[in-house]
Design a binder for these strands. Structure first.
Lengths: 343, 343
DNA sequence: ATGCTGGGGTACAACGTTGTAGAGTACCCG
DNA sequence: CGGGTACTCTACAACGTTGTACCCCAGCAT
């Protein structure tokens, strides 16, 4: 079935090493020989066996990307960006879904399946600081997300605190005082939720606004339905607010839907701010003002960093923390100047 | 760096084949030997080298999935379902993005990168019937989508014509007569757009409704913005309609946004029907009535079919065409009985 | 002539694993 | 107590590729 170097060598009347040399652009080959070999390759339709090449070279040309779930738009867009960046670098990407589950994440790190790749871009969601030792594996890892800081691997992520603070201050600047939050994680001190909450709190404090626990909606997974459910709970218990900060876009969109269904106008009655700048944020009604946390840069940097580690190994020095720049993507759901009535 | 069978064998004081036998659960091994080997494996932290195993066995345990773009929710959800099904079967998935571009699709089929996988699940978008010969490759392929029928590979897809007809009849049954379409592809006879249009036409004809070309919005890529732009064009040229059939959810959602922005109520003034049943369809305002084309079944069947081909090769017989069942997912944007005023 | 240099090519081993063949032991049967 | 049989384990080759060592020959200087 499969055509090998042996077959090509036989047809071309040379040794297999010469065929190998032609393929790998070794310079010292007579033009006549090269032509015969190339003709044989074309005739037989030879395609190199990458598995064998990998075994010999120790490199596979593949990297793994582990995300919680591709069904979550944020991770789908992250995966798209990583695959694009990897392809530009001649790498292929193996995608794993962990479900954001700690045990599956830990299992993944130990899995022999990763032996088929040169390294891992790992978007952790379930692991915590206590599991940091598990990251100390014998292949290069680039960590994404904010579950763990100060681990043994390079880490590419976003400025969660600053960005959330800027988002909150953006709402404050437009005259909002009672800013609800959806997506907080109860009692958590690490992770995106905690960091964004911290930014929220810093903004409130800087502007002399008291923190009101009754405006905080807690939810575990950042699915769309949870944003809807969370804001429904706030409304049901009579919370009053003039803005909602969704700790991600999906939550914000779910919340926005409920607000509108309940007769509130966005942004006139309630401003809504998201976080992530998904594609979708530009197409909701109204379009969603949100934080662009620099996802594309994160994807590109993660791939580039991983490739450096693969190429140079530990000599590259101690683990690095790389942070993306952010910006507020201003759209309709929250405006710098409050749109209509000043209530 | 890497621990091999040799290292384990040396520590355990046995031959490497014995270690291999322990790992592969070969039955005839003395408990004492097994224990020594297992202790050595644990002590050294041995992990099998899958590349070497692949070279020997000819199987990699990986499959490739090629989709146009993970940023498109439909394909993100497809990829999620494929990865999940593959993982359940002990396979790992390598994801490629083709951008829906014909040349990149053809190149992918010839790429040696696929030598790292046992087979390919290929969601083609740019290829046409004329390229069918390119699918005749020497590794198993399962085709998704509707660009090509009758090709040399197994094909798993949905009942586009019947489903689109049912969707249109659903709108007709609720009293709609002037049903606009967004997402048609001009002059095309294959592909999802053409098939769904055919279902639309069949439904009109079956109910004695004249086809009105002025109600058809053409657009190439099924991005969200195109749904918005397409319906805007219809409105601008004064088209009158009481329903919109988006040839996919993304288009329908984009169109719905514009309709609402223009002051029309959905579904009272205009009913909106989608196609795909994305997660998102349940969370728009109003939630989107749409066709659930059986994507999960498609993903599972594609993986199962590919595995069969990998295991049995050509002996499995001629290429098969496998079609998923569909259903209408009834939500708010279109109702079986017209909601409010009867105009 | 002899030695040297370098282009053009070959043979062989090795990457880490598994299949095949077979060696050695213990056991059971007649 | 010879001869099978089942068990336990080993040596070796092979998967398809590339790195290393080397050989041969032409051209050139000594």
């Amino acid at each position: 079935m499969a055509v090998t170097l042996h077959d090509v060598a036989r047809v071309a009347g040379v040794s297999i090493k010469t065929v190998s040399n032609v393929i790998n652009a070794y310079p010292h080959i007579r033009p006549a020989t090269r032509e015969r070999v190339e003709a044989a390759i074309a005739e037989l339709g030879y395609v190199p066996n990458l598995t064998a090449r990998s075994l010999k070279s120790g490199r596979t040309g593949a990297i793994a990307l582990a995300v919680p779930e591709l069904g979550l738009s944020y991770f789908a867009e992250l995966a798209a960006a990583v695959i694009e960046a990897a392809e530009a670098a001649g790498l292929v990407v193996l995608v794993e879904q962990t479900g954001g589950d700690r045990d599956r994440e830990l299992e993944l790190l130990r899995s022999p399946r990763l032996k088929m790749t040169d390294g891992l871009i790992f978007s952790a969601l379930g692991m915590s600081e206590a599991d940091v030792a598990s990251l100390d594996v014998d292949f290069p890892v680039v960590l994404l997300g904010e579950r763990i800081f100060g681990g043994p691997t390079d880490h590419v992520t976003m400025r969660n605190v600053e960005a959330a603070r800027a988002a909150t201050e953006y709402l404050i600047a437009s005259g909002r005082r009672r800013i609800a939050v959806v997506g907080a994680h109860e009692g958590e001190v690490v992770g995106s939720a905690a960091l964004r909450m911290q930014g929220y709190l810093e903004a409130l404090e800087a502007h002399g606004i008291d923190y009101d626990e009754s405006l905080i909606g807690y939810t575990t997974l950042w699915h769309r339905s949870n944003g809807a459910r969370s804001i429904t709970e706030l409304l049901d218990r009579g919370a009053e607010f003039d803005a909602v900060f969704g700790l991600n876009d999906t939550l914000a969109l779910g919340a926005m839907r409920v607000l509108q269904a309940s007769g509130r106008r966005v942004p006139e009655d309630v401003a809504v701010m998201g976080f992530d700048d998904l594609d979708e944020a530009g197409y909701s009604i109204p379009s969603l003002t949100t934080v662009d946390p620099g996802q594309r840069w994160i994807a590109q940097t993660a791939v580039a960093t991983l490739m450096e580690r693969i190429a140079t190994g530990a000599e590259l020095g101690p683990p690095r923390l790389l942070l993306a720049d952010f910006r507020i993507a201003e759209r309709e759901s929250a405006g710098a100047v409050r749109a209509q009535r000043v209530s």
